[in-house]
Design a protein around this nucleic acid. Structure first.
Length: 210
DNA sequence: AAGGCGATTGCCT
DNA sequence: GGCAATCGCCTTT
């Protein structure tokens, strides 16, 4: 096995931030390509990371997208350049982490629905109040992703994820082949509910709903 | 100015 | 499986 020949330090050093061009793709392609990438979060509590295993695309011409009716105070990060966060509060309780793609003015984004935790498991357990939970259940849902990673809309919206400066960044990860991706309709929406714009790694235990 | 709703989660039956 | 929790945003008076 190749992993036997690398120390953990070497593996960390082999990680690289994804370039701006990665965030200038068609949102449906982008949502699929985010699968397998590594999400990082650094706060004064420590650094956590995990593999993105489930995403949903929200397109500019999409009635289900917050940007559909134009720019407002809430959705303005969606209109920024690709590679920024758009975070909003759902049901008054849950923060939803989105990664914006496309050029400035084209409001498209991908919701991170589930992450397989990799580093900082103990901190995620504290944040989610799931001390005995299985690792794959700590961030298996969009609200849980933000909770486990310590991300909130007030503090963390419109952060550039192509650098580490903002405390949230995305690095390369495992390559996910097309035949390992399951495509379904999106969860929990009423508008454009027929669009098959949800993507997840087939069989992954951290996916929110099968 | 007021009321309804939502890209959810977790607890109760 | 059903439903309460909880609040900013958007639509309607």
């Amino acid at each position: 096995m190749a992993s036997c020949y690398h120390s953990e330090k070497d593996l960390v050093n082999s990680e690289y931030l994804l370039p701006r061009s990665f965030y200038h793709q068609d949102v449906l392609v982008f949502a699929r390509q985010l699968l397998g990438k590594r999400l990082f979060r650094r706060t004064d509590e420590g650094t956590v990371s995990g593999t993105i295993v489930e995403t949903e695309a929200y397109r500019a011409d999409d009635p289900a997208s917050h940007s559909f009716r134009g720019k407002t105070a809430r959705n303005s990060p969606m209109f920024e350049e690709g590679g920024h966060t758009y975070i909003y509060l759902s049901y008054g309780i849950h923060d939803m982490l989105n990664i914006v793609c496309a050029p400035v003015g084209v409001a498209e984004a991908v919701l991170i629905r589930a992450v397989m935790p990799n580093h900082g498991i103990d901190l995620m357990r504290i944040r989610t109040s799931k001390p005995t939970s299985d690792i794959e259940r700590l961030a298996s849902g969009p609200g849980l992703v933000a909770k486990a990673f310590g991300i909130s809309w007030r503090r963390d919206s419109n952060i550039d994820v192509t650098t580490k400066e903002g405390g949230i960044w995305i690095a390369n990860g495992e390559e996910i082949k097309v035949d390992k991706v399951t495509v379904t309709t999106r969860i929990g929406i009423t508008k454009a509910a027929d669009k098959p714009w949800r993507f997840y790694i087939s069989g992954n235990r951290a996916v929110s709903r099968i």
